[in-house]
Design a protein around this nucleic acid. Structure first.
Length: 869
RNA sequence: GGACGCGUAGCUCAGCUGGUUAGAGCGCUCGCCUCACACGCGAGAGGUCCUCGGUUCGAGUCCGAGCGUGUCCACCA
């Protein structure tokens, strides 16, 4: 056994050593074992290889806590880790990095660029994995995966081909969101909308026959150059005559028709809408209905193209907007400019204003896939915790649109579509075709890659070996708990569910545990630009991983955001130190050959009490974990260990440390509590557990404690409650009377029950305890303490301030009277006595009796005191 | 325009299916270096549980309305 423990817990000395040992022993490895309780699986949300560990990742603590708990319960607990290639995010970073060296993608070429990207993956993907280890994550690293590794890539290809063959993937020309900065399409989910100050330009479109004009209003004047019609509502009387006439599109000289479409809102703007099918999703629909030409006026990088006309070609889209407004004004066609707030979409990666534009892309037909995914949640096959997020999910799924999955990026999974250079024939296949099946011409692969979420959607089964029918897949799928923040329900959770339903026939997990977001002290979202996120690595170095984990799990409930502050971590560190010192105390009083944890015989009141309280804690903490109430579980452990075990039991145990029985109880309760705490504070619990008598080689593979009816001692709990009340009463009185801690006092007690004098000597600074059987203390010169089932007198001479005592008694009396009044009012209410459960009524009666007793005693005390003041 | 949170002690937040006197951490006041721990010990102060109605014998907890605040979704140009 280790020598005496240090006075303060030093996490930095402990954590690395213990983590390495766990790794070496292979404790994280999950396997199908005979006689286990079965599988318990969590797929780790794969962190992006772009990132460093941030506080958000530290919420993975919840997953680790669940895994550690289930592992101790005897499940084959698999926490499957990995990283995400994060197509667009990574590519943007690499391009940035290259720009600093004066390099560009194009200049480098595809092959070289990909080499560079893989090198990036090795460096930074590796870094974040190492950082996850610092947190204490007990993942099965032997199963670590990457969304672009061979297996995952095979799964992606398989899914693409199957969906294509089923007609659920198609290629077509649609309006998509385009990021001019990233140079790629992005999905609807990847566009963030925000309200911005903009303007509403009212513009005159003259009739071609020179008989007047129609006034339209727009927030994006530059798109005028791509207009191919103006639409009005068919029932709008203002424009009844206009329908079918021609207008001259200003600055272009083109003629465009006025068409009728009920998409137009009559009472918004001027009731006439310019239609730009190439640059607006609604206009695209209108255009399709009316067979309008589609005129794309912009380039990939957000400049105006030749179709915009020579005057504007090459201009940046926003510069063009300015110029165009100026030109309209010069022509007298600008009627007015109204300030207007409207929502602008931007790329979620680079925050450039996204451009809706028509483009040929690949899409997933979502409706048929959404149906089973909706059913899975409706039927309860998959549950959200907290349940309210089901609504978020349902709303999105029920209103889902086709998913644009192709990206004009290099870093990602190539689309398995091949085109014949000779005849244009397309083939979608698992293996690249040698030659065109039709004409024998050479085939070229589609240059686009897939949305990064396309591969993460398959994560719960691709990582287990799918499409091969592996043993892992059979055993660990479906997984159990998916734990993630609410901000990626659409991006990821929803897509995993429909993918699981489609390809596995089963939803990928039974529970989605939603965590909140971490915010800073001021409640702001953590962001790189604000630089307001503490670096978890530094926090861990300073306070320890256990303190950080504790901070993130305690007193927090699923789905709610959490404000992070260093003060909280410091408080958690203090708790770790408290555990450490309590254990140090226990440890230093043990014999060399102290037996392993067991419940001894000959238990006295306080032994029974702490065992009973421990037993209750076991039951409640386990129940909390089953309901995913991790915050509550941790809170209970904190309270139990600090308030009950340390503040009371250890103090009482000091009286009888020489008895093996007392030491056995200390060891039993402490090591059991450490087990309960282990999922949350893995390092310190392991370190201490090993220093105490124990069986087995690690706390992390020890058995989770179970509730034991034999350890339930309600009688001892009741007696102990009385004792604690008495001790607190004495302490309180001494404090208020300003009795110096060193001054011991005589204590006279009349009680229904008796306790060992030593208890009072030790905990209440008593010099001697006098038990008054069946009679009160007779002299008047004493301070009285009245409790439930006891009265205590402390001779006044030993105290100092009778006036203060009188004031205190009066205050307490008033308080008691108020309470008594309340209880009596309740008891005399027939509604209450008639309808409330018997136990509640009995409780109230008992309370009333006790209060009445206290009141009587207080009055007596006051009367007695009155004589002496 | 929809949907969803939140509003409890000075600050940050717990409080499950309604049931005795509403809790914690930090901060504050008083006293203690008491032989595990000053990252500590003991004792305190501090709350109209946002407002108004309702259901109920009983509401911080359930319902309705309102106010404040935050988030997500949405094609009104």
């Amino acid at each position: 056994m280790a020598a005496e423990l240090a006075k303060q817990y030093e996490p930095a000395e402990v954590e690395g050593r213990i983590y390495s040992e766990w790794l070496e022993k292979g404790y994280f490895r999950a396997e199908k074992r005979e006689g286990s309780k079965g599988p318990y699986t969590i797929s780790m949300p794969p962190p992006n290889i772009t990132g460093q560990l941030h506080l958000g990742h530290c919420m993975y603590t919840m997953q680790d806590a669940l895994i550690r708990w289930r592992r101790m319960q005897g499940y084959d607990a698999l926490w499957l880790p990995g990283t995400d290639h994060a197509a667009i995010a990574t590519e943007v970073k690499i391009v940035e990095q290259m720009a600093k060296e004066g390099l560009s993608k194009e200049a480098l070429g595809y092959e070289k660029f990909m080499e560079r990207a893989w090198a990036w993956k090795e460096t930074y993907g590796g870094r974040i994995v190492e950082q996850l280890k610092l947190l204490g994550s007990s993942c099965d690293w032997s199963r670590e995966r990457f969304t672009m590794d061979e297996g995952c890539s095979k799964a992606v290809k398989e899914v693409f081909v199957r969906l294509y063959e089923k007609g659920l993937i198609y290629r077509g020309e649609r309006i998509i969101n385009w990021c001019v900065s990233c140079g790629t399409s992005i999905s609807d989910a990847e566009v963030e909308h925000s309200e911005r100050d903009g303007a509403f330009w009212h513009i005159r479109y003259p009739y071609a026959d020179g008989t007047g004009h129609i006034e339209i209003a727009t927030t994006r004047p530059e798109t005028l150059l791509g207009d191919t019609a103006v639409a009005v509502h068919p029932d709008d009387p203002r424009y009844a005559e206009a329908i079918g006439r021609e207008l001259i599109l200003p600055l272009t000289g083109r003629n465009i028709p006025v068409i009728a479409d009920s998409y137009v809102e009559m009472d918004f703007g001027t009731g006439a809408v310019k239609i730009t099918p190439a640059h607006d999703p609604n206009d695209f629909e209108v255009g399709a209905r009316h067979g309008l030409p589609i005129l794309n006026v912009m380039t990939d990088d957000g400049h105006m193209n030749a179709q915009a006309g020579a005057a504007y070609e090459g201009m940046d889209r926003f510069a063009c907007r300015k110029q165009l407004v100026k030109d309209l004004e010069a022509l007298g066609l600008l009627i007015k400019v109204e300030p207007m707030k409207h929502s602008v979409g931007e790329c979620y990666r680079c925050h450039t204003v996204a451009e809706p534009r028509v483009s040929t892309q690949w899409f997933v037909r979502m409706k048929p896939l959404a149906e089973p995914a909706i059913a899975a949640v409706k039927s309860g096959e998959t549950k959200f915790v907290p349940a309210r997020f089901e609504k978020t999910y349902m709303y999105w799924m029920e209103n889902i649109k086709d998913w644009c999955i192709s990206r004009q990026l290099w870093w990602g999974h190539r689309i398995p579509a091949y085109y014949c250079g000779a005849c244009g024939e397309m083939a979608v296949t698992r293996e690249a075709p040698e030659k065109c099946a039709g004409c024998g011409g050479d085939m070229v692969q589609d240059p686009d890659s897939l949305d990064t979420w396309f591969s993460s959607a398959l994560w719960p089964f691709s990582t287990l070996g799918w499409p091969d029918d592996t043993e892992d897949l059979k055993y660990f799928y479906p997984t159990n708990t998916l734990c993630t923040a609410y901000d990626i329900i659409f991006f990821w959770v929803a897509r995993m569910i429909f993918s699981g339903c489609e390809f596995m026939g089963k939803a990928p997990f039974d529970t989605v545990l939603i965590t909140g977001l971490i915010r800073d002290e001021l409640g702001r979202k953590l962001s790189k630009s604000l630089g307001n996120g503490a670096d978890p690595v530094e926090v861990i170095q300073k306070y320890g991983a256990d303190a950080l984990r504790f901070t993130l799990t305690t007193g927090n409930s699923p789905g709610n955001d959490l404000r992070f502050s260093e003060e909280k971590v410091s408080a958690s560190r203090n708790f770790a130190n408290k555990i450490w010192n309590a254990s140090r105390f226990v440890r230093m009083n043990l014999d060399e050959d102290e037996p392993a944890p067991h419940v001894p015989g000959n238990l006295n009141m306080e032994d029974q009490w702490i065992l009973s309280r421990y037993n209750t804690t076991v039951r409640e903490v386990t129940a909390n974990l089953e309901k995913f109430e991790l915050g509550m579980a941790v809170q209970k452990l904190y309270d139990f260990l600090w308030d009950e075990f340390c503040d009371w039991y250890i103090e009482l145990a000091k009286i009888s440390l020489t008895e093996p029985k007392t030491r056995a109880v200390l060891v039993y309760v402490l090591s059991g509590t450490l087990k309960l705490l282990h999922p949350f504070m893995p390092f310190i619990t392991e370190e201490i557990w090993r220093a105490l008598p124990h069986e087995g080689e690690s706390i992390m593979i020890s058995d989770w404690p179970v509730y034991d009816e034999a350890l339930s001692f309600p009688g001892a709990e009741a007696r102990m409650a009385v004792f604690m009340e008495a001790v607190k009463g004495i302490r309180n009185r001494r404090a208020e009377m300003n009795v110096p801690p060193g001054k011991k006092t005589n204590v006279f007690i009349r009680a229904d029950d008796t306790f060992s004098d030593l208890l009072f000597v030790k905990l209440a600074n008593a010099s001697a305890v006098h038990w008054l059987a069946g009679r009160d203390y007779e002299k008047d010169d004493a301070v009285r303490i009245v409790g439930s089932g006891f009265k205590i007198w402390i001779p006044m001479g030993e105290l100092v301030d009778p006036a203060a005592e009188k004031a205190r008694l009066e205050k307490e009396l008033a308080h008691i009277e108020k309470q008594l009044q309340g209880v009596n009012a309740k008891l005399s209410n027939e509604g209450f006595t008639g309808k409330a459960p018997a136990a509640v009524i009995e409780g109230a009666r008992q309370n009333a009796r006790q209060l009445a007793e206290k009141r009587a005693a207080l009055r007596e005390s006051l009367a007695a005191l009155g004589g002496t003041v």
